[in-house]
Amino acid sequence: MTADGAGEVAVETAITTESLDGTEVFRTLGSHADGAVLIFQGRVRQTNEGRAVSSLGYEAYGEMANSELRAICHEAAQKFEIGAISSAHRVGELALGEVSIVVAVSAPHRDQCYDASRWVIEEVKARLPIWKHEHYVDGESHWVGAPDSNLAPERSSPEPEIR
């Protein structure tokens, strides 16, 4: 975990291969000024766009992913009146139902928790340099979001001669 303060808001982030399924670490999030704690967990779902998923591989641009996640949390600390924020993203191979991301926010009141949590997860999806390799029950796999219909190189074509 990378921990630092944004003003008085405690910010903690991690990109990790370790399981995120436990929520014990968030028991001490924030202070007694915070009457609300909201923990969002994203999990590996069994279907995506109609295809049956068997497992997922997450790849990250490690250092940048953590600094970007930290930047997102700091921005949330500026935008919303929260007491603390902690977020971690899992990488590596995940089975169905395993937790891929946690966003935990504490705040004096619930509205700011819900708003900050929702904002952070949307920013993560838009900005975090992390890629999802979906493995399907039928044995195929696909990089999520990859426009490979117009990206696929024609591997069978002969290489041009270099003179």
Binding site: G42, S67, R127
Partner: peptide
Amino acid sequence: AVNQSYAEIGTQLADGDEVALIPPVAGG
């Protein structure tokens, strides 16, 4: 991304820079 920050297409490169080509992201 240049040196682990998103960069504009017009950003000037320096010797030793780390330049990453970022496919569509899919975190979460």
